[in-house]
Write a protein that binds this DNA or RNA. Sequence first.
DNA 1: ATCTTCATGTAATAAGTTACATGATTAA
DNA 2: TTAATCATGTAACTTATTACATGAAGAT
Lengths: 178, 178
Amino acid sequence: MNLRPASHLILGMVRLGARSGYAIKGAADASTRFFWPMSLAQVYPELGRLEDAGLIARSEDPQGRRERNAYSLTPEGEDALLRWMRSPQEAETQFRDEGILRLFFADALPREDQLALVRRLRDRARLAREQTEAEIIPLADALKAEGIEFPARIARLRADSHAAAEHWLAALEDELAT
Amino acid sequence: MNLRPASHLILGMVRLGARSGYAIKGAADASTRFFWPMSLAQVYPELGRLEDAGLIARSEDPQGRRERNAYSLTPEGEDALLRWMRSPQEAETQFRDEGILRLFFADALPREDQLALVRRLRDRARLAREQTEAEIIPLADALKAEGIEFPARIARLRADSHAAAEHWLAALEDELAT
DNA sequence: ATCTTCATGTAATAAGTTACATGATTAA
DNA sequence: TTAATCATGTAACTTATTACATGAAGAT
């Protein structure tokens, strides 16, 4: 079985304590979604594959009449996760941003529209930073109390990156306004 | 016909003077690929659709016995491009980075392996910055001589972002090393 | 001569999203 | 009692990539 990044993401979330598929998806939405998005429709088939491969163990854990599965890492799963983290092979980072794409072609626009575009992008960066600070960082900080430190570091990186984008766009705005 | 980002990317490249499908792909590889990747297999069908929609005009422009098409923007194509640049609707930015995903789970690793991972990511950021400075910025600067300024701004943004990542990773390395 | 680049296009495959389908539990 | 959340899964669709197929022009 060849494991993809989403497989390791799931292994990692199980290791951090997410037990059901739904919980794994929720944990990913609050943290890793910004640098590795994953939909719920990916989670369930992948959990099946990981179980077949012996990397996670499933036990039934119903909540009243509502069915629920509780997954945990097997020793092989833990090995696979650590091996992946040490491995240098990785998918090329991929980044898609329609806003920056617009800005690339902005020479075609009159100054006024260039400014409007830059302002929109700046607002977008501000919103992303604010959301990270208000919603993502507090969740990551809660993990820090349990000795899990990297999620908070990465949430901070995200906030800092958006802050840097805000500054860059503000400087561009000033340059275009003169 | 509903236009996707790749459609507008092609319109934009045609506007900047790329005439053949091959040339469009080449121009995109030297600039927009970092924030909107596009494969050659997307270009040709998309050119057909844009031509059918009357947004670009095709003329035959063979090079000896080798066939070649030369595309140019129609007034409708120019309109569509400018409308898109002014429009606030956009696909959610998406970012996928297996390296950062690893770092998110790095609490599971011993300190030594954490450091090795951070160093690898730092090298990767340095390489990306160096490549941008050596290959991408000079190409964008050449456009500046023709009065096209935004590509150079965005190439600089890319270099700066990777430089910031390098610094952030260097600081993390120091923190982990103590 | 031979390799790289230029040039166009299609077919097969992979990956991932949205929509569909269902139903229990909990909070307002 | 109504809405939101928890929970699992499948089917249809979209999007994009890799591989295939072909061949001329230009550089070494």
